[in-house]
Amino acid sequence: MEKQYPPIEPGHKWFKTLVIKIVFFLLGRSFHSTSKLDPDIKREIATWEEGFAFMMKIFPDGPRMTVEKRRGILKYRGSAPESADLVITFKSLESAFLLFTAQCGTCQGFAESRFIVNGDIPMAMSLTRCLNIIQGYLFPSLISRLILKRVPPMPLYKHLVRLYIYLVGVPLGL
């Protein structure tokens, strides 16, 4: 019998997609909480224009999330918006997985071309600084040391902010 070479439909990575969706949710709500409580992030976003939005998405049609500045703070807008002023596109689900599971830092990820940035570069730099601060909250210092060039100091106040993020900010969106 003649050997067949049928076309192969692309599969799905359900588990990693779910992880990234959870991370986007966690990150989006963390942006919201920290924009109210962290002095460094407040200072950083004070220079952003009202209505400025950034999006993170996975190429080509994977999970995405948008955060927007509204009334001086950052609001998590979920996956509904289809465009933003600054768009960070991860080239693959695996690339995003590496970054969001702390196997690779933001700067290292950019250096390794894991994602591309469309939009204003100074704004992307400002967002990177915010992301570094948030990663300092989300990960224990042992992990932060591996992925950040410099771990932000964690005085007592920041430990309280971390508690707020995990107990109030992420579950309740406040």
């Binding site: 700067c107 950019f110 250096a111 570069i121 100074p122 992307a124 730099m125 400002s126 990177t128 950040l148 060039k149 410099r150």
Partner: peptide, 13 residues
């Protein structure tokens, strides 16, 4: 300087 994109690729913060 701190808003220049090249800073991302510098090994030290």
């Amino acid at each position: 300087a701190v808003n220049d994109g090249s800073l991302t690729f510098n090994p030290v913060e």
